[in-house]
Nucleic acid binder design. Structure first.
Length: 849
RNA sequence: GCCCGGGUGGCGGAAUGGUAGACGCAGGGGACUUAAAAUCCCCUGGGGGAAACCCCAUGAAGGUUCGAGCCCUUCCCCGGGCACCA
């Protein structure tokens, strides 16, 4: 194993030095002690969820157990841990569970590559990662640990599938999916990178396969609408989900075909341009095209074109600019309002996956249609006149709104009025109606993979698709299978698994061999934590309703759409089933930024991974935690710098030295004011200044912590320690009650950030109870008060001087003092004062001419 | 192309419209030491000046304001998301 710190300057330090530092700040012993204490006292365990008086659910997205964690992962958990400890100190009963998103493809790849069973590989990684999480000193209630790959968990994933099936929200359909011809397997969208297979680089093709779907589109509207309830989510994530759902209003329009019974339906957002439609275009996968192809009705060129498109589709989609290409189908449609004939074409720029897979082409007002019309000499008819009155220039489409022209009875209407009028006309002719269309598509949950929850259905020759009865769950994943990639689920290789009995007729049936997308597993895990071992239901409704929505959810922004949208969907379904009382699973969402090294995301292949283990070994967990928090605003990306770790270490040593000195001089009686020293608070002088400063900084830290501005909270702690040191250096007085107060505040405020150190200091300060039971401090208002205040004096907006005035002085007195300042007079002499701005407590600005 | 972020010292970053650069890192000087490390103290945006102090400076250019890093307009650059979405 290589030492990830070889390049750091610290590694050149001598063993002697390290020993000296370790003696001055004995983090190893202290961290061990603190962790043992938290564990033994069950400090972060919730024994009975229903007994909690002030529930607070603090949750990190549970990880996929891929192996080693690096400091970038650590940031996520450290942030969550700060929330957990902060809320604990604030008196909440905090639920802080951890688990494993343990199904997934990497385990299966490991099985193929290393001949190790996915279950073994996963278990090993979980053990390794758990060890790492523990080494960071993270406060989790390990009694609630779950793993989605265990039967007592996935049994309930299957159960949820059945509930969706019963409601008609899980269905089987033929669909075009990503197919890698080399690996002979279906790929998830995430595994298709720029049209190629992530693993082997082959161009991905499209195949039509029978797949299981969840009907998430049935919830498109509430999923969109309820985003407005999520005031404490990052704007960015809400925008991403909004775009993903992609609602657009428009019309559905039916065009009759000459000599055919079935009309062609199109979706358009611009019914006001209907009179400008000069042809129709179908996607290559459109059912009508398929029918023509199979019936031999297409020209040879057109048929070849369609075949080619079907295979190139995926790659084409990633081509930056594809030349528009198409062929006439030979069909003719009829304009529903004018009766004019419109040729029907098939082309590469129309997608089957959006709307109806067919469009009406309005070349004058849609740039794509325009380009296509130019190439194939379709007529271009202007029907919208821009507000500036300019006419159609023939060089490009005008896509804005305007007034209708060349539109028979609707001429002169605005686009907005026109949309309504045209839809009205279509409704009267039964040729169309208004329509809302979504970009969101149903969730394809089938995976032809082994390491996932088996989809609990069987196929009976007589009865067809049959759900497995709930009483027979879980459908267990068999151990013995062939992992070779064949394009079909490895489960097919296990005869015993395949053979099933039809629950309806009792006859022989074949088991479904696809497993579920792992996003199904993770779309409900946060409910399971309340009663992780429950055997009669996936979760206990009363407990879940008491604790959810999750008060603070923390994770990477890469889950902004998939996991967070799927979880919202499943919760809405469960709500409709009466199983939960809330509509949204996560009240507050925080997406932390990535930690980069040498400008890149950390990855094994780039060799820029910063391993936490060696750092923790050398500096202790609290140093790593503190540096990780100090590195920058938690929501932003940050560049890791090993020197910065040294800085955090130096700070903790200075803090520890301060505690040492304090105890040596003042003793360790557990009081904020030293009983041995009966001095009252100082009325004035350095001690009074120290107290004010300490409470000012405390007020800032308290606010920063609440807003998760943890980088500035850390800097505030540094300022506290600096203030005490400066006072001690100048006054040589460690006995002042003001110092005792500063030490107490610094220690408790440090608790959530550097918990081991704070706990160790707290104990040395003579407290019997854990620091996490000591309550959360407040700043003393009385300490913040001052007799004199310092105001900035500006002349014409530029700072020229400062004046010190009694608090509560009249505006006149303050202005007089400001004007009397010689440095101010230098700039006001010989000029007329036009105006004086006085911002109380802040500044005086003298405007002169 | 569209939609979000973001551009502040050598570096990470601070700044409810009110003293730009807190805090830390790096660098320079000093104390301690036989010496080094560690530790402690001082300095550290640019320019001018012996100093007091002055001028310039938050990607660029305008604007609003007594006052703009922060608000508005236009533009440039970087990061992310979506992308032939009808």
């Amino acid at each position: 194993m290589s030492d990830g710190l070889e390049k750091t300057p610290a590694s050149s330090s001598s063993p002697v030095e390290e020993r000296d530092r370790a003696a001055a700040y004995p983090f190893r012993e202290m961290e061990r002690r603190a962790r043992a204490r938290w564990r033994d006292e069950g400090l972060f365990e919730i024994r009975d969820p229903m007994a909690a008086k002030r529930p607070f659910y603090s949750l990190n997205m549970f990880p996929y157990p891929s192996g080693d964690l690096h400091v970038g992962h650590g940031r996520n958990y450290i942030l969550g841990d700060v929330v957990t400890r902060l809320k604990t100190m604030q008196g909440y009963d905090v639920l802080s569970p951890m688990g494993w998103d343990a199904f997934g493809l990497p385990a299966e790849n490991a099985a193929i590559a290393n001949k190790i069973h996915p279950a073994v590989w996963t278990k090993r990684n979980i053990a390794r990662m758990k060890e790492q999480l523990l080494s960071w000193g993270l406060a989790y209630d390990w009694n609630r640990e779950i793993a989605s790959c265990l039967p007592d968990y996935y049994r309930w994933t299957q159960w949820i599938f059945l509930q969706l099936y019963k409601r008609g929200l899980a269905y089987r359909a033929k669909s075009a999916v990503n197919w890698c011809p080399t690996d002979r397997t279906v790929l998830a969208n995430e595994q298709v990178v720029e049209g190629r297979c992530e693993r082997c680089g082959s161009p991905v093709e499209t195949r039509e396969l029978e797949q299981w779907f969840f009907k998430i589109t049935a919830y498109a509207e509430p999923l969109l609408h309820d985003l407005s309830l999520l005031a404490h989510w990052p704007e960015k994530v809400r925008v991403m989900q909004t775009n993903w759902i992609g609602r657009s209003e428009g019309a559905s329009i039916r065009f009759e075909l000459r000599g055919a019974e079935e009309p062609v339906s199109v979706f358009t957002t611009r019914p006001d341009t209907l009179y400008g439609a000069t042809f129709l275009v179908l996607a290559a996968e459109h059912p009508l095209v398929k029918k023509l192809l199979e019936g031999g009705k297409l020209s040879r060129e057109a048929a070849a074109f369609v075949e080619r498109l079907r295979h190139q589709r995926v790659e084409n989609r990633f081509a930056v600019e594809t030349e528009k290409e198409g062929f006439a189908t030979g069909l003719t449609a009829v304009h529903p309002l004018t009766g004019k004939p419109l040729p029907v074409w098939v082309a590469n720029y129309v997608l089957m996956g959006y709307g109806t897979g067919a469009i009406m082409a309005v070349p004058a007002h849609d740039q794509r249609d325009f380009e296509f019309a130019q190439k194939y000499r379709h007529p271009v008819v202007e029907v919208i006149r821009p507000p500036d009155g300019s006419g159609f220039d023939g060089k490009g489409a005008y896509e804005g709104e305007g007034r209708m022209v060349n539109s028979a009875p609707h001429d002169g209407l605005s686009s907005e009025e026109g949309k309504r009028a045209v839809i009205q006309a279509l409704v009267e002719k039964k040729a169309g109606e208004s329509r809302v269309n979504y970009r969101l598509r149903d969730w394809l949950i089938s995976r032809q993979r082994y390491w996932g929850a088996p989809i609990p259905v069987v196929y009976c020759a007589k009865c067809g698709v049959q759900p497995v009865p709930e009483s027979e769950l879980p459908v267990l994943l068999p151990d013995q299978v062939e992992f070779k990639p064949t394009g079909e689920s490895p489960l097919l290789s296990n005869e015993k698994f395949l053979a099933a009995k039809c629950p309806t007729c009792g006859g022989p049936a074949r088991r479904e061999t696809d497993t579920m997308d792992t996003f199904v597993d993770s779309s409900w895990y946060f409910l399971r934590f309340l009663n992780p071992k429950m055997e009669t239901a996936p979760f206990a409704s009363d407990a879940v309703n008491r604790w959810l929505p999750v008060n603070q959810y923390i994770g990477g922004v890469e889950h902004a759409i998939l996991h967070l949208l799927y979880s919202r969907f499943i919760v809405k379904v469960l709500k409709d089933l009466g199983m939960v009382a809330f509509a949204e699973p996560f009240e507050r969402l925080f997406t932390q930024g990535m930690i980069t090294k040498d400008g890149h995301k950390m990855s094994k292949s780039k060799g820029n991974v910063v391993a936490p283990d060696t750092l923790i070994e050398r500096y202790g967990a609290d140093t790593v935690r503190l540096y990780t928090l100090f590195i920058g605003p938690p929501e932003k990306d940050a560049e890791w710098n090993d020197r910065g770790v040294e800085g955090a270490y130096r700070f903790l040593m200075r803090y520890w030295k301060m505690i040492d000195q304090f105890i040596e001089i003042a003793g360790n009686q557990p009081s904020r004011r030293r009983p041995a020293d009966p001095r009252p608070w100082a009325d004035s002088g350095p001690a009074r200044d120290l107290r004010r400063r300490v409470n000012e900084v405390t007020a800032q830290i308290l606010e920063d912590m609440d807003r998760l501005h943890l980088n500035t909270a850390v800097s505030g702690l540094m300022q506290l320690v600096n203030a005490v040191q400066d006072y001690q250096a100048a006054e040589g007085d460690m006995l002042a009650p003001e110092v005792a107060e500063a030490v107490d505040l610094a220690t408790r405020l440090l608790g959530p950030l550097a918990p081991h150190t704070a706990e160790g200091a707290w104990e040395r300060l003579g407290h019997a109870e854990s620091i996490f039971r000591s309550g959360w401090p407040t700043a003393s208002q009385e300490a913040l008060a001052r007799d004199l205040e310092r105001l900035v004096v500006q002349v014409n907006g530029k700072v020229r001087s400062q004046v010190e005035v009694p608090v509560g002085a009249t505006a006149e007195a303050i202005q007089k003092a400001a004007m009397a300042d010689p440095r101010v007079q230098k700039f006001t002499d010989g000029k007329t004062v036009a105006q004086v701005i006085h911002v109380p407590g802040r500044l005086v600005n003298i405007v002169v001419k």
